[in-house]
Amino acid sequence: MKNIFLIALNTVKEIKRHKILYALGAVVIFIMLAGLVLGPLSLSEQTRLSINFAFTSCHIGLILISIYFASTLISHEIEKKTAITLFVKPISRLQFIVGKFFGLSFILLMALCFLTVFVLVVHFIYKHSIGPILFMAMWGIFLEALILLTVAFFFSSFTSSFLVLVYSGLIFIIGHSASGIIFFVNKMEGDYFFKVIVSIATYLLPNFEKVNWRAHALYHNSLVEGELLFSSLYSFSWIICLLVITSILFERKQIA
């Protein structure tokens, strides 16, 4: 546990001292402010537009932090050869992966708390009622960022940081399109084999729409009973599976 804590602490230090974290934070706040400025242009939709901008900027910000740092954290250890000095210390590769995961998760949690304050401010400005669904929507964004973090870790165990960024971005896009793809494929007539292949492919990748409750928060729709628990379990299953696979792959990696 001590080693995991030390790696996590070092990861937090690494990200905290990275200018990109603050640049991403500034971009998110800029998008939120843009929502406030552009809101009046939409006349009757002013509240909805500004709150939607707030949620979207939080979503984009957290996902960018997750993918960018997850794609560099492990790959850079190999590419910059810092792993050589680290793995001759009494530390297992599993501890390394788990430590990195907790470190970046902590940063994401801090970013989430910070951005939630901004979302609440936007709600206050437009006197939009604040209910538990708002926090559930933010929790959903956090879960999605955690899944993408482990997806990027998984790719990091066998490819370069640039390709990790590309592959993780693709998984993000597919993960949000999965529900739509399944819907349209089911509407298609004939070609049963194609339908099965597409369905299997979409089930083999994480479906991020399962944790997307931003529209619910905007329209005050409540979640289906047990949806929060089911989606959280679904997300943590993905996270644990990917962490285990990454550790196994990383164990076999040559640190040269």
Partner: peptide
């Protein structure tokens, strides 16, 4: 490993520390 110290050929360290 606790009893071994190692200096690699090209010492790359965490440059943010």
């Amino acid at each position: 490993l606790k009893k071994i110290g190692f200096l690699p050929e090209q010492p790359y360290f965490y440059d943010y520390l």
